[in-house]
Design a protein around this nucleic acid. Sequence first.
DNA 1: GCCCTATGTTAAA
DNA 2: TTAACCTAGGGCT
Length: 295
Amino acid sequence: MPEGHSIHRLARQFNDVFAGQVLQLSSPQGRFVDGAQLLDGHRLEEAFAHGKHLFLRFDNDLYLNVHLGIYGAWNFGGDQQFRGASSIGAPRKVGEFELTEGAEVGEYSSPPPPKPTVRVRIVSAHGWADLIGPTVCRTLTADEKEMVRAQLGADPLDGDANPHQFFSALSKTARPIGVVLMDQKIISGIGNIFRAEVLYRQQIDPFRPAKSLSVEERHAVWEDAQKLLQVGVELGRIVTTEEDYRPGIPLAEAWPEHANYVYQRQGQVCFRCGEIIRVQQVAARNLFWCPGCQN
DNA sequence: GCCCTATGTTAAA
DNA sequence: TTAACCTAGGGCT
């Protein structure tokens, strides 16, 4: 799925094109009929993200909570108000991390017939959004929403986030740092790409126990994750390389081959030390790292 | 068409 | 630790 940056972009996009408007919600697929009915005809007050969770607050104090999982995606379309809106989520190709196609923008009177897999369709006077393939799609009360958020670690994209609970959690576990960074209860928004790239950039062996990281390393991991996530929010895709590792290649063209240091680069030469990038299944996910730089 | 893959999470064993 | 969930694309036959 998209990592945390994409969900923050989704929240921004929902605020741009739907906030303040009365919306129609339906479930063409039929698996979210009751939940959609609770929100149908209500005004969207605001959208926000916590890690990889998206929340939409409606004027009856109910929330639509969506997690895209590994297959989920939102597609948008509508009139000129939807210009610039992106489809966000799967499918994706290697190196193409977020955008599939832009919103369908033009004359708008009603949305196209939905694909049979559309879990939720949201329709306003100006356009529509279709959700397919989510891991989570549910309607929550305010209390339930708080219970979900209480299970999530601090989000580096949240300006009010307090990283101290993250630092503290690292100091208390011997689990490998590469595994802990994927634990959304410890820190939320980091996925398989950011975990690999942050550890490479900080030259930290992903198999080291989290508690073995120095105070400086813990701070550096948080701050680098924050920086890379912010770049992702701005670009709409994940680019983790610094300019000196893509010499003469502008950012816009640093994609896909020069976008990452280790992710999906197994068997290739490390840009920094010349070692061969490795990959290994850890906790059912592909972990990429450079054995030369990260030890 | 068939098989594999994927930026993920949860529950069961 | 494994399976299940769930979707679409790409490469292959």
